[in-house]
Design a protein around this nucleic acid. Structure first.
Length: 876
RNA sequence: GGGAGCUUAGCUCAGCUGGUUCAGAGCAUCUGCCUUACAAGCAGAGGGUCACUGGUUCGAACCCAGUAGCUCCCACCA
């Protein structure tokens, strides 16, 4: 047999993925079976696979493959997200490299470039998922900007507008000066940053000075007031005075408001309504003008009067010496505070007043909260329910407009007089326009469509419905069959962005929840706990990993240490462990493949066979229960131990014929069938190696084209002989003890030994004789009625064993060992007796607990007797 | 500032309704083995004040209170 001793993943992976595709095993169409559906969290269309995707999609694939093997009609819908801000940023950067400015080429031309870019780079990530083994129904691949998905966005916008839930207004929004768009509150990430607090002196009309403290000296030109607390005794003299902004010498009023914290800074606050949310509100309250000195890209405009055209951060640097020179800078202190960053571009967010579109949330949120609170939708792990609830109860209106081109354009058309109409398209808008204005002369040229597009999440919240075409054709077979979907696997980071909104959309547009279970994965971190990121360079390339350890190895590695909701400290060692496991399975296969069957031989392995059968069924139960609780890494661990320990280390050793000896047919057949079962339970975790071995003709014969592991029927839990399992544990312990004796006495495993058994427990060791002699190299097993002289004695539970040896025994050491055990047992007995003698215990403890204590006592007494007998023997 | 959660072996984590014979797993470690499936392996072993302090209970890793440390989420103090 010249098969490599190592499993070579590469070839098998390519071969079987193509085979599955070619024979359409991933394809799902509605039929009479029960559906099991997952929609993929669509990755960014221009993204590349990172470790987070690996974890996420491995879990989804495990779930979908298991469901498929359990006879469900499994459908995993893949696709990508247009990710407006991220993708647009990339396209803008690409154009810039070619010396093209977005504004110069205009919207249409820009969109052409963007689509070109999408066609070129889009979907790379989906190809990478195939390497991982993802069994998605690729025929169903969707993109959030596909025509019908975009239509759904327009339709739902109109729907919500008609309900009065969408409105337009000037608000202070989070402005991303790099993406040049507003972003929602959820897209702002706050980070603590080391800053400076600048103390700046303003001249006052009474001839004196006041000092303010600010982190943003570059915005003083936009100040429209100085605010002090009316109760601040220090500043009573300032009441009714005016102050002058340094450098530009502009006069601004000094106003009073108890919003100002007297303890902070100097107690004087510069009020800049255009560039700070609080100041904006203060400005409204005190009727202050708004002076906006910033352009959309974060540079200063001519309203600033000085430093015009400078970027806000450059301006900050430059204004400091200017203030210093003017004698207006008192001091600079180090200061730590929270600053908002754009999730997508990482630019510092600028609070900015602008006209935006909003969606009212409370009525959408209420039913979405109920689904989760009532348990119709389960969050796994449950701890996220609290967070979810808090968010849903405090939800704010959603800023849905984005000043971008890449995305679904808001279906609003402006009339020359500034009014607008909402319509599905230009023609319909024109009709509406004629109706609202009464002016029938109006033409399409008079209308101007809103430039803004909607937030990406305003399209992806429709995903579970739109992928099944549930908007255009709400009664089609697909949506009726697959919706609601079953499980959603995603990261907790987007619980609100996406999961909550999908639940809202599901309820609002379909009257039904979108999925039943949400499995929240952890964040993949490196082994010292840092989040994996491009900038840190601590993220391995998933493709390299798969190259190195095989896709199966990496899948197993990902799952080993990732309970739901817990961050995963990724360590390449886990992949190595996964690869080693694949190799273990491979070698079990090599052993089995090498056996010759001799029909004339009788089966001496009945016990081993029934033991493994029971053990397999027992493990199936554990795996089943782990999956039912979404404890996927534990399900994998149960499988791992069953295969490695029980199947390879114990069962195969029990039945293995001597070198080059044939095996009897019954044992062989049973083993082949066990191995097939092993392949099945491993398949969801390790699809490639299992499919490869499934098709070995020597072992399994010729299989039909459709007879593949991927669609094999998952074994069902059968009979479990618990008595046998219990006895086998004792036998295994006995075997381990014998091996230990060899090790301590330096007896080679090749040298066979004799064993005498004094069975006090009632276990009939006779039926395990074959197993014991084979796995512990015992030539002869005999019953013993009494203690054997000149033998190593040991016990498992209450059964006594003796191995006769030539050399003299260290009696003193034996006695000491037994004495120690005796002492321990006496102490133990004392504690049990104390319990049993305690009236309160006897009254309060459940009957089965008391029974157990009695049994413990009886066991201890029996053992004590044996030890005392032995001690007497040794002494005598 | 508010909230949630965590702390169990060197590491990563289980431990379900408080009750088996000193608390489990995987990895790592140590010892002995190239024993004809596998050294990416086999056999065996060691390793813990369950964060700390107190309480409830016949009985606490588990329930309660406090303390310390860590993590995450939310929040407009310049």
């Amino acid at each position: 047999m010249n098969i490599s001793t190592k499993y070579q993943p590469k070839e098998a992976e390519d071969k079987w993925y193509s085979y599955w595709m070619e024979h359409r095993f991933f394809r799902s169409v509605p039929d009479e079976r029960e559906p099991y559906t997952i929609v993929i969290p669509p990755p960014n269309v221009t993204g590349v696979l990172h470790m987070g995707h690996m974890l996420n999609n491995t879990i989804q694939d495990v779930l979908i493959r298991r469901a498929r093997m359990k006879g469900k009609n499994a459908c995993w819908v893949p696709g990508t997200d247009h990710a407006s801000i991220a993708t647009e940023a990339k396209v803008v950067a690409m154009l810039k490299e070619r010396g093209i400015n977005k504004k110069d080429i205009g919207r249409e031309k820009f969109m052409e470039y963007a689509w070109e870019w999408k066609e070129k780079y889009g979907g790379i990530i989906l190809e990478q998922l195939k390497k991982l083994g993802a069994s998605c129904d690729w025929d169903r691949t969707r993109f959030t900007m596909d025509e019908d998905l975009s239509e759904a966005v327009t339709d739902t916008f109109i729907h919500l507008y008609k309900k009065g839930w969408i409105y337009r207004g000037i608000r202070m929004v989070n402005w991303d000066p790099q993406g040049k768009t507003a972003v929602s509150d959820e897209e702002v990430i706050r980070k603590e940053v080391n800053q400076k607090l600048y103390y700046i002196r303003y001249a006052v009309t009474d001839g004196g000075f006041l000092t303010i403290a600010t982190t943003r000296p570059e915005t003083i030109m936009a100040d429209t007031a100085i605010c002090i607390n009316p109760n601040d005794e220090r500043y009573k003299h300032l009441h009714g005075q005016k102050a002058f902004i340094p450098l530009i010498n502009k006069e601004i009023p000094i106003i009073l408001d108890d919003y100002v914290d007297m303890e902070f800074g100097t107690g004087c606050l510069k009020v800049t309504p255009a560039h700070d949310l609080n100041d904006y509100e203060l400005g409204i309250k005190h009727n202050l003008p708004v002076v906006d000195i910033l352009n959309d890209d974060g540079t200063l405009n001519d309203k600033a009067q000085i430093l015009v055209g400078e970027d806000r951060f450059a301006a900050r640097k430059k204004i400091v010496p200017m203030l210093e020179e003017a004698g207006s800078l008192e001091k600079i202190e180090d200061y730590k505070s929270q600053i908002g960053f754009s999730e997508r571009t990482d630019a510092v967010i600028e609070p900015k007043l602008s006209m935006q579109w909003f969606c009212k949330m409370p009525e959408l949120a209420r039913p979405a909260l109920d689904y989760v609170l009532k348990g119709d939708i389960k969050l796994i792990p449950e701890k996220f329910v609290n967070t979810y609830r808090y968010w849903m109860e405090n939800v704010k209106d959603w800023c849905i407009s984005r000043q971008l081109w890449w995305g679904q354009r808001i279906p609003a058309w402006y009339l020359p007089d500034g009014q607008y109409v909402i319509a599905e398209n230009g023609e319909e808008a024109l009709e509406h326009a004629k109706l609202t204005t009464g002016n029938l002369e109006i033409t399409i040229e008079d209308l101007r469509q809103e430039d803004d597009v909607v937030d990406t999440w305003f399209s992806s919240w429709l995903w579970p419905i739109s992928v099944f075409d549930g908007f255009k054709d709400p009664n089609n077979d697909d949506i009726n069959y697959y919706y609601p979907t079953n499980d959603l696997v995603t990261a907790p980071e987007i619980l609100f962005f996406w999961v909550a909104r999908m639940i809202m959309a599901g309820h609002e547009f379909r009257g039904e929840l979108p999925f039943r279970n949400v499995y929240l994965t952890g964040i993949v971190r490196d082994k010292i706990g840092r989040k994996m990121s491009k900038s840190l360079g601590n993220s391995p390339d998933p493709l390299d990993l798969m190259e190195k350890y095989g896709a199966d190895g990496v899948r197993v590695g990902m799952l080993f240490s990732s309970p739901a909701g817990n961050d995963l400290m990724f360590d390449e060692k886990h992949c190595e462990q996964g690869r080693n496991f694949a190799n273990k399975v491979w070698n079990a296969f090599r052993l089995l493949k090498g056996w010759q069957v001799d029909d004339s031989l009788e089966n001496k392995n009945e016990i081993a066979i029934s033991w493994f059968k029971s053990r397999f069924n027992e493990a199936l139960g554990e795996i089943e229960s782990n999956f039912a609780q979404y404890r996927i890494s534990e399900a994998l661990m149960s499988t791992y131990k069953l295969v490695w320990d029980d199947f390879c280390a114990w069962y195969m050793e029990m039945i293995k014929p001597a070198y080059e000896q044939p095996i009897d047919k019954e044992t062989y057949d049973a083993t082949v069938s066990f191995f097939e079962g092993v392949l099945k339970i491993l398949h969801p975790f390790m699809p490639f190696i299992t499919e490869e071995l499934w098709h070995d003709e020597d072992i399994f014969g010729q299989r039909s084209v459709q007879d593949c592991c991927i669609v094999a029927k998952m074994p069902e839990i059968g009979q479990i002989d618990t008595q046998l399992l219990r006895e086998a544990e004792v036998v295994k312990e006995l075997i381990t003890k014998i091996r230990e004796v060899r090790q301590t006495k330096k007896i080679s495993p090749k040298e066979s030994l004799q064993l005498s058994i004094k069975a006090n427990s009632g276990i009939s060791f006779g039926r395990f004789e074959n197993i014991i002699s084979k796995t512990a190299n015992i030539s002869n097993i005999s019953p013993a009625n009494n203690k054997i002289e000149s033998a190593i004695a040991f016990r498992v539970s209450t059964d006594e064993f003796f191995i006769p040896i030539e050399e003299d025994l260290d009696t003193a050491a034996e006695i000491e060992k037994l004495q120690k055990e005796k002492e321990y047992l006496l102490g133990f007995l004392k504690s049990v007796d104390a319990k049993l003698g305690n009236d309160r215990f006897m009254q309060n403890a459940k009957p089965e607990i008391i029974e157990n204590e009695l049994k413990k006592k009886a066991d201890a007494v029996a053992k004590l007797k044996i030890i005392e007998d032995n001690l007497r023997g040794l002494a005598g």
